[in-house]
Design a binder for these strands. Structure first.
Lengths: 356, 356
DNA sequence: TTGTACGCGTTATCAG
DNA sequence: CTGATAACGCGTACAA
């Protein structure tokens, strides 16, 4: 069954059928209805390849995640973000393919570019810039290939979706300071991850503004186990911190376990602040105070911006900064039940296209 | 740059260039070399859409995971399996796209079939049959569309890759019995998951064969938290079990935490057996005794079988059962250091195509 | 509003 | 081993 067959059955030309299929307005209601009926009856579906060949669009976009699967899924961030991207793709009738390239070696990047960009396999790319990816971004910009980064990389004037990690981390730190904690330690994520550095900067900003010394900073990774170890060291050492701010919720859980292992009470003996806030049952079971970022919305928005880029090739870079919210649990002390802080404690959002 | 251009530059016909690109043997070494050089110089890449249109093959295969992203990644099973599938795709020069359809509603299945099968978007499908999927499998078989299931569903004569969950669970239970444990409880996975049921059957087999009563069985889900709760109930109740066999490693971790919370020593007061064995650091840190299944190899093999199916449409169903191995840690008691049990304690493997 | 004619870049078939 | 030539199924200016 192809366009031609349908056209014959409906007694019209291929063009007309094509217009009906593509919702072109220039078709009379009567003809449209007849053609639609035949299409339904015959169960006709346009051939994807032919469509791509003629339209020069594959309607396939890629989501590049620069880490190994096992690394990725130690945390809910990627799954949730991916879910958002998939939602958006469904709505836009796009196919999403997950690309995984662990390395930034030129050879690997080359292969990726060849397979996806130059063969016109993909219409665009969403890149989760966990690790710094100079080579790839540079190549893509040179090819004028549409792509959107998740997570801002100041070195590139590319489109991106992000939160203001620095402001959010500062917010969280200020919250701890306002609660009277003074020895506040920070357990950081990987140094090569821009977001992790920004969070660290936000922490440092707040500490400096309050005239407090930045506590020991444990370089870690975004996983519970490493955070557990780091927290054990911190809590066993001299000058035990009164509060620990972990760069992710998974890490915060590690801190909580360390406190438990040492018989410390939270928040009595130790306050704990997390960052992420997308695992509801995790938050509920631990009542973790954390900074909530809209992971799903971020994934969704990245696809939406990408669509805009694809539809309008002349378009300049598009940006969007999502707000992050302080989510009050029970791990920082204080009684927040009656304080409507959430609204006030939110970082600023920037609309798409605004310059960040 | 297209075939035509290359042909002109090389002074040959399009056909010849096409043959070079596709590694067709019927090209003289001299011509091949000339064409290859030009291709390299010009950075030419064949257009994927044109290729698909002419060859009637997209070289794209789908991996269908019938759950939400958040559900999927509570466990390492999917990530690792997916990684294996991606490995195989890379080698076979295929693209892998992740499909996620959470429901088995006819409407949803329809949409999936339309978008992928009927539009010739995909050449084939790997289906992770976590939940029973009658509708989809039936439809696919009716359409004679190539697909491979991960996890056997006895109701369908489809191709599949699996382990012998029942035999593996029996093996593990026998191990516990041989260590002298008699009150052995089982914490099961979701009842709708075939693999979970099979593991339960294997447990029951072993208990029955040993003349022991099956302990209380806690229907659970494949996650740590639920297992923790279930274990707390079991361990706090009367007739505290001497051993607990959990249907997955994540669940076993939950059991270990419960034991810890109750001050029970493992394996002194309680033996714990897991199932999965693909998270190395998890195994190492907890020294968990578990049944190891080759998740990555399973994902890889599924793609390989699918390729065979695609290449040879007349082909009947292909099967492969991977062996599962007892991996001895320190949570079941006993000293295994000198016992070369691993080789002996393995379920049987079936080669592809063999009837299971 | 509808139809005509051509182009999209490959693969496949057949003849030489 | 090589080269014409015909599909492959659809989009889209352009004409009617």
């Amino acid at each position: 069954m192809n366009l031609e067959d349908i056209a014959k059955l409906a007694g019209v030309s291929r063009s007309t059928v094509s217009r009906v299929v593509n919702n072109d307005a220039r078709v009379s209601a009567e003809v449209r209805e007849r053609v639609t009926r035949i299409i339904d009856e015959t169960n006709y579906r346009p051939n994807a390849a032919a469509r791509s060949l003629a339209s020069r669009r594959s309607r396939i976009v890629g989501l590049l995640i620069p880490q190994s699967m096992s690394e990725i899924f130690r945390d809910a961030w990627f799954p949730v973000m991916i879910q958002g991207a998939m939602d958006a793709c469904q709505e836009a009738d796009l196919s999403l393919t997950l690309l995984m390239e662990s390395s930034t070696e030129p050879a690997t990047v080359d292969r990726l570019i060849e397979r996806t960009v130059r063969s016109h396999h993909l219409d665009g790319l969403v890149i989760s810039t966990a690790l710094a990816d100079d080579v790839l971004c540079a190549r893509l910009m040179a090819e004028a290939f549409p792509f959107v980064c998740i997570g801002q990389d100041p070195r590139f004037a590319s489109s991106f979706v992000d939160i203001d990690n620095r402001a959010a981390a500062r917010l969280a730190t200020e919250h701890l300071i306002e609660h009277g904690y003074r020895r506040i330690a920070f357990i950081a994520g990987h140094r090569d991850i821009v977001a992790a550095c920004s969070r660290h900067e936000g922490y440092a900003d707040a500490m400096r503004a309050a005239g407090l010394p930045s506590g020991p900073v444990c370089p870690g990774e975004f996983n519970e186990h490493r955070a557990f170890t780091a927290a054990m060291d911190l809590l066993a050492g001299p000058e035990r911190p009164e509060a620990i701010f972990a760069a992710s919720d998974a890490m915060a859980i590690g801190v909580l376990r360390a406190a438990q292992a040492l018989g410390l009470r939270v928040p009595g003996d130790l306050a704990v602040m997390g960052f992420d806030g997308f695992e509801d049952d995790l938050l509920e079971s631990h009542r973790l105070t954390t900074v909530r970022q809209p992971a799903r919305a971020i994934g969704r928005r990245a696809i939406e911006l990408l669509s805009a880029l694809i539809a309008n090739p002349g378009q300049g870079p598009l940006h969007e900064i999502f707000p992050a919210t302080l989510h009050l649990g029970a791990t920082c002390g204080g009684n927040h039940d009656r304080l409507p802080l959430e609204a006030a404690r939110t970082t600023t959002a920037l609309e798409p296209g605004a310059v960040a």
